[in-house]
Design a protein around this nucleic acid. Structure first.
Length: 106
DNA sequence: TATTTGACCAAGA
DNA sequence: ATCTTGGCCAAAT
């Protein structure tokens, strides 16, 4: 018996892997999908261990449709999203509701 | 153990 | 519509 309980951060990464290309989720939705309200902690997790290409952390945005942060710089996040077909107007998504991945939750 | 820190959020002014 | 404020939770200090 040696398995440790996965940290909250690890569960975030796992869950985030389910967000397909061209879609996004929010810090809040991600936390909610994990049965938690720790949306701030989600942000912390993304910042500290971006597990680089493994986890699409650029697909996590704020609930109000603005981008939020990115370890490699927000400009980069913008570019990645645009490249996947997510359209922006400045630092804000134009069609958040439409491209939101809700993890099968309503 | 206690305190501090955020890639946040909803509500108020 | 924008800006500020208080609260929230896990993890790092």
């Amino acid at each position: 018996m040696r398995k440790k309980t996965p940290s909250f951060a690890d569960r975030c990464y796992q869950m985030l892997k389910k967000v397909p290309r061209g879609k996004v989720t929010t810090y809040r939705h991600l936390a909610h999908a994990l049965g938690s309200r720790a949306y701030r902690a989600v942000g912390q997790a993304m910042k500290r261990n971006p597990n680089a290409p493994r986890v699409p952390c650029h697909r996590v945005v704020r609930s109000d449709g603005t981008l939020g942060g990115y370890a490699g710089g927000v400009a980069k996040k913008k570019r990645l999203l645009t490249r996947e077909g997510v359209r922006l107007r400045g630092d804000r998504l134009t069609e958040l509701k439409r491209q939101l991945h809700t993890f099968g939750m309503r």
